[in-house]
Nucleic acid binder design. Structure first.
Lengths: 198, 198
DNA sequence: CCACTCAATAAGTATTTACTCATTATAAAG
DNA sequence: CTTTATAATGAGTAAATACTTATTGAGTGG
């Protein structure tokens, strides 16, 4: 074996940087300085640039890993057999990744273009499962017959609106999704149902 | 009269700064440097700080004036007699102010807190007219009986989603609202109607 | 024990940008 | 015409921050 201890040490430092950056960016947004990340991670400022030539490289790495992780969680959507269950699970996954996802949708313009494609991939994954089930349920006749892409954008738009404006909907550090998931879901289901509940 | 010519000159410079800042921020976002604004306005860099002690003061002034202007346009909503007409007019007003409004919703976090209240005031104005008509139409029985705040947030969420992601929905420099207003409106109407069109 | 490699350090650099201030030019006042 | 007031100027300052680099020191191989 060739320089094992060193490899491990290097990998550890890299992980520390990634984990810390993920946490700090989730908490305070992508404008936090690299020096803050370094201090918080307990490594020197220069170490960041040993592992990531530029800040953009770090951001791309973070967002990409995030997309992979969240993408895996979204596989749960494939097993759902009703649109209501699917959306409920969608909210669960979003809640799991809420802090970073919030930064992704609210500060997407601070990120390199490569990160935008991650955002698109995530939405596409949800949209795929959404469409599948939605078309099935529309055929059953319980759900309104509207273009699925419009129904999807209405759903995403509603959820993002609550997330983006969480300070108006929930307390600091309170999960806006946890608080409103029930209301969001029942409201949306009532909208797309051919007959609303009384 | 006391120092008339000077007063006029000063007022002109101030106006030039405000107008230019409004245009440049609309085009390129709130991160554009004050030096760029100054050059584009044809005044010296220092002049900006003669009229606005800090950049925040300029931003607050801009957003506040914007809120007043858009608020006046929103008075048109009071005259509308159906929810469909009201939303159509809402989209018209949004389209009129699209560029700056887009920056307001996408870069709200770059702005001082004072600007956030302007955002709230605008939404409140729309929500007020929306609720008035909506409750009337719900009583008529054509529209689904759902909480009006939820219906409103669904509408705003949908419209904002298209605006925030305009690069995925329309070409650069094309108005996403102009392109989709019809689709957005008919989709939303179909959702809130008790029976969807066939 | 010695020479070498390389991860890690931390002081330093370069750039950006909000803001300042001494100076200038011009309008107003006497 | 002279003096004064002030709007405007633009070179300069200070702070923030991404990135560099000479140096260090611990691990590795002989």
């Amino acid at each position: 074996m060739k320089s094992l201890k060193r490899q491990i040490q290097k990998e550890n430092t890299r992980k520390k940087i990634i984990e810390t950056a993920y946490r700090i960016f989730s908490e305070k947004g992508f404008s936090v300085a690299t020096s803050v990340i370094a201090k918080e991670a307990g490594v020197s400022h220069g170490s960041i640039f040993v592992h990531f030539p530029t800040l953009n490289d770090l951001l791309v790495c973070l967002v990409s890993e995030f997309g992979d992780k969240m993408g895996e969680s979204l596989h749960l959507l494939a097993k759902k057999d009703s649109i209501e269950n699917l959306l409920a699970e969608h909210l669960n996954v979003l809640e799991e990744y809420e802090a970073f996802y919030f930064r992704l949708i609210s500060e997407i313009n601070l990120l390199p273009n490569e990160a935008k494609s991650t955002f698109v991939i995530i939405q596409s994954k949800v949209a795929f499962h959404f469409s599948n089930i939605m078309e099935r349920e529309i055929k059953k006749g319980v759900i309104k017959k509207l273009p699925t892409h419009m129904m999807f954008n209405t759903w995403i738009g509603l959820v993002h609106y609550y997330m983006l404006n969480k300070e108006f909907f929930s307390r600091p550090n309170e999960s806006v999704l946890h608080r409103y998931k029930g209301e969001l879901l029942s409201n949306y289901m009532n909208l797309i149902n051919r007959e609303s509940e009384v």
